[in-house]
Amino acid sequence: MNAGPVVKLVLLILVYFSVVSWAIILYKQFVVQRAIRDSDKFLDFFWSKKRFDTIGQGLGNYRHSPLTVLFREVYHELAQRRGTEGQAKEQMMADLGEQERVARVLRRATTSETHRLEKYLSFLATTGSAAPFIGLFGTVWGIMDAFHGIGQSGNASLAVVAPGISEALVATAIGLVAAIPAVIGYNHFVNKVNILTGEMDNFSQEMLNIVQRMGRGH
């Protein structure tokens, strides 16, 4: 390829974007798929058991689900309170501040898990929006170079003009090749993360209800 250094640099950047985008797409597919699968299984398991300690012992089977993190945080919080205060369960749960603390723990865990699930998605968004422009820049630069060469050679036949423009257009093509999968992947994973976030919100509400019922001694 006879492209200039700027066009070559643009192509390298686009290849880098493409490689990393595809790595993120594969990684996210792996992580999100397992998270959804383990969440479904964990919810079935959660509602089939009546004791927190029994559920806590089986968490290892669903370690990829974000819901297990929420449950673990609440369970840990409740255990810490009981271990530090050493008071009776009824007395502990009667405290109205306890429910707020559990709610805060759930919000923190939900936020943390959402961030974990959304990790690297910003790179896909950046690639999807910036790669075509980077490619376009490379094309414009390449065409500028081509016309400069034509002006110097003084020959404007199609045989002289076409190769330079063709090479310059490769940059736009690679930009689109990098951007299209990134945009599709970004939309796909954002949708999946939204589904998981909704599941976490619902689970948080259920956990708060349970903690509240426990406080009332039901």
Binding site: F30, V31, Q57, E73, A79, Y120
Partner: peptide, 19 residues
């Protein structure tokens, strides 16, 4: 429900490496 039974690290998700 003892603290010793909750000894696992809650942040351990066994994530695969991006590398």
């Amino acid at each position: 429900m003892s603290a010793t039974r909750l000894s696992f690290n809650h942040s351990n998700h066994d994530h695969p490496k991006l590398g």
